[in-house]
């Protein structure tokens, strides 16, 4: 039993909390990635019945079934299949898509950029607008001022935050696309085609996030340390930028991370509304058509993207906010 007289030696983790934190988080991500790999690999094998038969239909000849099985590597022992699978990932061989008969890597390489662009633009738009609107609303309604504006803000954002992006997309297609013919409603080269899909993707999240940003900003503005800053009679600019802003960084980063991860699902929906040639339409096809190779690859891609985003956000948070590294896993 250790009495307080005996000093407890400080380990590596106590001396270098940031390094320990980075290692912990990265290790966690690798673990989750492994789980994802196993899950995507196991997908085929968890399908009840014979997956190949399900894909080819009950009347397919045995030779075709065998050939497809060999293609998918299903005739080999399990651990060899997994090894092949993982090594295939490194070489870029993800199998052949049964619906298009093309290599999966080709399909993805062709469609990924359009999805990534859409999501990326939407992300930037959402972050810029929700931060501005949220912080502005907080400063405006601080201490209960302009309660009318507060009510208008809460009602409007509450309304738009509840409309799902595909409904919004349909509405935009109808009003701005069909009625007013202001913007194109399907993919075509040029910037104009991005307007409606980005709007559909962004409006909901902007509404939801600006509410959260406003609440967080108010909390910071009302904190005791802001009162201390005011007691120092610093100029307003310094009070907001130096004292308030850094404390908003943590919640903003966390939100950004969640947002980016959430855009993954939203993009799929919006692409289906606007017939966008991205991965969104491919996702659905692959599941419905039981195209295992493609579904596997898409699942892996989506999952890995979300995991990496979460890791990056965690790491930046850990560096920016010294208190978060102390918290246990």
């Amino acid at each position: 039993m250790v009495s307080l007289a005996t000093p407890v030696p400080a380990g590596f983790t106590d001396r270098h909390p940031t390094a320990a934190f980075l290692i912990r988080r990265t290790a966690r991500m690798i673990l989750l990635l492994l789980v994802l790999l196993v899950l995507s690999f196991a997908m085929i094998h968890l399908v009840p019945g014979d997956p190949v038969r399900a894909e080819l239909g009950p009347r397919a000849p045995a030779s075709a079934v065998e050939q497809r099985q060999a293609e998918l590597g299903l005739d080999q022992p399990l651990h060899e299949q997994f090894a092949d699978y993982v090594s295939g990932l490194f070489t870029g061989d993800l199998g052949i898509s049964s619906t298009s008969k093309l290599p999966v890597s080709e399909v993805i390489a062709e469609r990924l950029p359009d999805s990534a662009r859409l999501a990326g633009i939407a992300f930037v738009v959402i972050m810029l607008l929700s931060l501005t609107i949220g912080m502005g609303a907080a400063v405006l309604t601080k201490d209960g001022r302009h309660s009318g504006s507060e009510l208008a803000f809460t009602t409007t954002t509450g309304f738009f935050a509840t409309i799902p992006e595909f409904v919004l997309g349909v509405a935009l297609v109808y009003f701005l696309g069909v009625q007013l013919q202001a913007f194109p409603v399907a993919y075509e080269p040029g910037v104009a085609a991005y307007v409606l899909p980005v709007a559909a993707l962004s409006i909901g999240p902007i509404a939801a996030l600006s509410r959260i940003v406003r609440v967080e900003t108010l909390e910071v503005l009302n904190a005791d340390y802001m009162r201390t800053a005011r007691s120092k009679r610093l100029p307003a600019r310094l009070t907001y930028l130096r004292h308030a802003l850094p404390n908003l960084l943590t919640s903003t980063l966390t939100l950004g991370g969640l947002l980016l991860a959430g855009l993954v699902g939203g993009t799929v929906l919006v692409e289906n509304v606007f017939a966008w040639p991205g991965l969104g339409t491919t996702v659905v096809e692959s599941v419905v058509a039981q195209d295992y190779a493609l579904a596997q690859a898409v699942m892996l891609l989506l999952g890995a993207t979300v995991l990496v985003i979460n890791l990056v956000v965690d790491l930046i948070l850990g560096l920016v906010d010294p208190r978060s590294t102390i918290k246990e896993l």
Partner: peptide, 18 residues
């Protein structure tokens, strides 16, 4: 009587043979 808690660096003695 002795009571211990789990701290970050190991067990922390809160009550030491009282």
């Amino acid at each position: 009587l002795s009571v211990q808690f789990h701290g970050r660096g190991g067990p922390v003695v809160a009550v030491d043979e009282v």
